[in-house]
Nucleic acid binder design. Sequence first.
DNA 1: AAAAAAATTGAAAACCTTTTCTTGACTATT
DNA 2: AATAGTCAAGAAAAGGTTTTCAATTTTTTT
Lengths: 337, 337
Amino acid sequence: MKITIKDIAKLAGVSTATVSKIVNNKIDDVSDTTVYKVRKIIKEKNYTPNYLARSMVTKKTKTLGLIIPDIRNPFFTDIAKGAEDRANELGYSIFFCNSDDDLDKEFTYINSLIEKQVDGIMLAGAAKRDRDRERKININIPIVAVDRNAYYKGIKGSIEIDNYTGAYKGVNHLISKGYERIVFVSGPLETKPSMERLRGYKKALKDAGKIIDNENIIVGTYERNFGEKVIETLDYSLKNVGFFCGNDLIAIGLIKSLKEKNYKVPEEIGVVGFDDIYISLLISPSLTSLRQPSYKMGYESIELLIKILDNNNEEKNKKMLKTRLIIRESTNRINLD
Amino acid sequence: MKITIKDIAKLAGVSTATVSKIVNNKIDDVSDTTVYKVRKIIKEKNYTPNYLARSMVTKKTKTLGLIIPDIRNPFFTDIAKGAEDRANELGYSIFFCNSDDDLDKEFTYINSLIEKQVDGIMLAGAAKRDRDRERKININIPIVAVDRNAYYKGIKGSIEIDNYTGAYKGVNHLISKGYERIVFVSGPLETKPSMERLRGYKKALKDAGKIIDNENIIVGTYERNFGEKVIETLDYSLKNVGFFCGNDLIAIGLIKSLKEKNYKVPEEIGVVGFDDIYISLLISPSLTSLRQPSYKMGYESIELLIKILDNNNEEKNKKMLKTRLIIRESTNRINLD
DNA sequence: AAAAAAATTGAAAACCTTTTCTTGACTATT
DNA sequence: AATAGTCAAGAAAAGGTTTTCAATTTTTTT
């Protein structure tokens, strides 16, 4: 049988109230000798308090939920690692949930997390949102949204990326490399990052005096699979085209299919990704991409979440982080301009 | 305030005992009319039981721990996904832990999982083991070991891979392709899979009438970083060498450094990996590798774990899965034999 | 119609903590 | 010496469920 606070109390000849105070370091009104005596017995007997019983009365579980859309995408994997590290440092455990980018699954997970009484949730939401449905869900615990937006009532903070500027930089880079037609291969437009990137794309074209043509905006999913299929759907010739992709997985799929069709990257065609996952460095040609501080995003979102839980969030609850353009082989040709 | 079983009982004019029976579907000795009436009110009020209170009395939390060494390695990521999917299907939640391949961190996590009263643990252990220390940890919940071995007292089952045969197939393939010197680039040898692969490597050499030379066995970590450094440490010329790598990350790092030094893969040098993570398909040259059923490993280990928890494990608690050799560009040269 | 058997229900204990508030014992002040 | 003030400690309630078993009601059998 596991040893309980009663056992300790009996052994020490004190009440459970006293032991409880000592365990939780509320020893202002406990005498030094009692503290010493009880601590010794706790150590001897290797007592640890029962979390369930404690949580019952404190209404805190020291447990968080972590929802990401795609565990196979290293971008989210890095976010998860950052989140886990920080949670661990702060004494929290993490329930892990992978939504497969499916809003229904996300709903189910949120409900199950609430039932398990997590103190808060870190959410990287599914791409396709549904404002009305989200608003209806009854959430009484804090949520911090990371990377992607969401409309739940519980959302109390967010860690975002400056996608607008990022996209602007990426597209601008393609233009400066002399690619003529600039194509945006986007993930679902229901999500804010996608829309912001679209906005940056358009602004960069406009600033360069280029015409915005819907034919050059292709929308799909944030998966490699989509990237591989893209060129099949295009009915114009791929001469001197620059592709700006919604993420690296799409870009990697695209490059794969371009190579199979014997297009020359970067000589004929340029490709820019978004995220800078580590694979981008390994493929050939290596991928020019916009680096996001993914680990940091996870780390800071948990920090923010816990601050909110502790009511210590004097700071703003919205944080925006910057991207950095990492230039590699996939756009690295002699500038034709 | 959240609605409780008492509220339901009062509304229905029955006792909490009756409501409890109905909630848990133990309705053999509850009249149909009562069941109907109570169910209706439960639905109306949207009542869900309090997990903490329930766990207090049942001593089950419907929660499992999942420990993997490296979330950045897609092999373990796939295991985690399989595990999560199966756990979810069976109504369990998962506490996620990343040990960074560090035994101390693994210990800490196990203790914290036990404190949080998980029902069981799925463990893909850190590579370097310590039998004596592990034996000392007091574990009173079941553990299923996946992929890697461990010595904790709590281990009640395992899902393994036939690493011996896998390695044999890989090495044999290199030999049949005419590579002369076969080098084994291994992860830490403290772990059973590594030792089994070494055994397979040796057997394949022996069967081919080749001499086993310790100079050709290089031991490091299961990281890409190690793969990139390997050739710096070799003091023989890399002519017609076949590298058999402990995992794909090592192989990918190795290929990267070979390319940088202008060695021709596969013409001069052949490389075989282990795991067949999806990146192996994307790099250039694409990587010949031994495919492990990683998703399945995670899926089945959770299944086994829960069977053990339910005492339904008539079957053997040890399962061994097979590998499959996937031949790609990194060994695909005209056979010189 | 009475007795026996079966079906249904609920009272109360148990699970292990934390927290509040009262009590009792000292100490300091007048 | 009496009173006020301080300090230390514990009794008891609360948190929400499950489970056991005794009590009651209903049905069946004689």
